[in-house]
């Protein structure tokens, strides 16, 4: 995964300028900001609001509404474990419990060393190869505790 850049208002202004004139620009703009900075830092709210002629409350409202947008950067790796029904039928609940135990975190948390963030996701569309997960954007199916263990081992 590409390492996030530290906050830089000029870099943010570049991104904002690229999107600000498109109709309904806020989501594509926030996606790209998060792609650059790893999250939507509080410092980004004011320039985004000004460029789109929105209030800061409106921008904050959108950032906080969507599960994808982070206020703080994630760990160096992100493991999203599907916890929806199709994966439940194939044992994703106990799989998640094992991962939580092994890493010493709950779903939604990051390990103390900042290495891995583990999150629940509700459906990756891999429902016939359950249980499924996404690790740093790579999809994995037919997961077993051993396979998750092997995936976690490979992480730097």
């Amino acid at each position: 995964m590409r390492a996030p850049e530290p906050w830089n208002p000029d870099r943010a202004a570049e991104v904002i300028a690229r999107h600000k004139d498109a109709p309904g620009a806020l989501l594509p703009l926030l996606h790209e900001l998060q792609g650059v900075f790893g999250c939507i830092p509080d410092e980004a709210v004011r320039p985004v609001a000004e460029a789109l002629n929105l209030s800061r409350a409106e921008v904050h409202g959108v950032v906080s509404f969507y599960h994808d947008f982070r206020r703080d950067p994630a760990g160096r790796h992100v493991l999203k474990l599907c916890q929806a029904e199709a994966c439940q039928s194939m044992g994703c609940r106990s799989l998640a419990a094992e991962v939580e135990q092994r890493l010493g975190v709950r779903l939604g948390e990051t390990t103390a060393d900042g290495r891995v963030t583990v999150e629940a996701v509700y459906c990756l569309g891999l429902c016939a190869t359950a249980p499924s997960a996404m690790l740093d954007g790579q999809v994995v199916g037919r997961l077993t505790p051993a396979r998750v263990e092997a995936l976690l081992e490979t992480l730097p």
Binding site: G24, L27, L30, H31, Y66, H67, F69, Y122
Partner: peptide
């Protein structure tokens, strides 16, 4: 194409 942001 517009990409959503994780809201069911």
């Amino acid at each position: 194409v517009r990409v959503g942001a994780g809201a069911y």
